[in-house]
Computed example of a mutant assay.
Amino acid sequence: MTRAAVLGAGSWGTAFAKVLADAGTEVTIWARRPEVATALSSEHRNHFYLPDIPLPPLAATHDPAEALAGADLVVLAVPSQSLRANLADWRGFIEPDATLLSLAKGIETGTLLRMSEVIAEVTGAGADRVAVLSGPNLAREIALCQPAATVVACTDTARSVAVQHACATGYFRPYTNTDVIGCEIGGACKNVIALACGIASGMGLGDNTLASIITRGLAEIIRLGVALGAEPATLAGLAGVGDLVATCASPLSRNRTFGRVLGEGGSMAAAQAATHGQVAEGVKSCSSIRALAAKYAVEMPLTDAVHRICHEGLPVPEAVGNLLGRRMKPE
């Protein structure tokens, strides 16, 4: 690939633009706020999300048409629930055969569509042009060039390999896969389980509890993924277990941080403030994932509990009691 446009200058969009630049790919990053674009292009800093990390020289703009002109790789790095509206504004500027790579991790509210499905519906692109990237990819660690691996999934293997080469560096190792469904379900659901882990941590619960939540959360993710057509092996890999462990265990995780505040007895507003205005995707996705599970008759008790805590006012101790009081059964 010769030129990439990264649409979204949050922490992960900025970190991934750095990865692309470090891999030798020409990259332009679009920022919603003009002052962010100015700082990125003139100072090589993102003062809002990664203020202390120097970035390589990056072209940056507030104009989506300028960012997208001639780009054969379009990286979509905006929150999942705003992807549709943004794409509707951008689709006229996207090159006809460009690969569309989603970094967003969520299930769309209302439609219950995965992000690749939203992209295809809004742009008219065939499924073979849409790729997703998912793995244990905490933005700050990657921006610091700490070693990490990821998965690029696309039904067109040649496109996934092209993306793989466009973002491979000495510290960032991408693998390819054709299981788009598995990568997306793993990426969306792990945010909800991370909220549960954060809640448990905020309550002062220990590692046995966290390990139990992660393991039973993985069981929920696999059940839903398989019902939708995912490969179980994908969910045992980087886009499943890898992403799940990183998001559930790290204090850098916005979803874990949000949940921790709730577990400490804080309000939804306090939890949002603790994430410094950044989006904790699991807060909205827990409801759409719960609805998707109901559509496919998949049991997801942890996801249900998180939804009820966040959106129905269920007290955290009562949610824990409900989970522990469920009927006994084989693993």
Rank of each mutant, 00 (worst) to 15 (best):
V163C: 05
G170Y: 02
A158E: 15
S102C: 12
Y171S: 00
L133W: 06
V180G: 03
Y171W: 01
L138G: 00
E141F: 00
T99I: 15
C197I: 05
N177S: 12
E121P: 11
I142T: 02
I181A: 04
K190V: 10
S201G: 14
Q146I: 15
C197R: 03
A85K: 11
R140Q: 13
A98G: 06
R114Q: 09
H165C: 13
A120S: 12
A194M: 03
A200I: 05
A98F: 06
P96K: 04
A88E: 15
T178H: 12
A158K: 13
V161L: 15
T155E: 14
G204P: 01
L144H: 09
V161G: 08
H165F: 11
E121S: 14
L112R: 06
A131I: 08
G202D: 01
V122E: 07
R129K: 11
V163D: 09
I94N: 03
A168Y: 07
P174N: 04
K190S: 07
T123S: 09
T176G: 11
G124L: 00
G170N: 09
T111S: 14
I199C: 05
H165L: 15
A120L: 07
Y175Q: 13
Q164H: 11
V163S: 04
M203Y: 02
C183S: 09
V161D: 14
S134Q: 06
I94G: 02
I185M: 11
G92T: 07
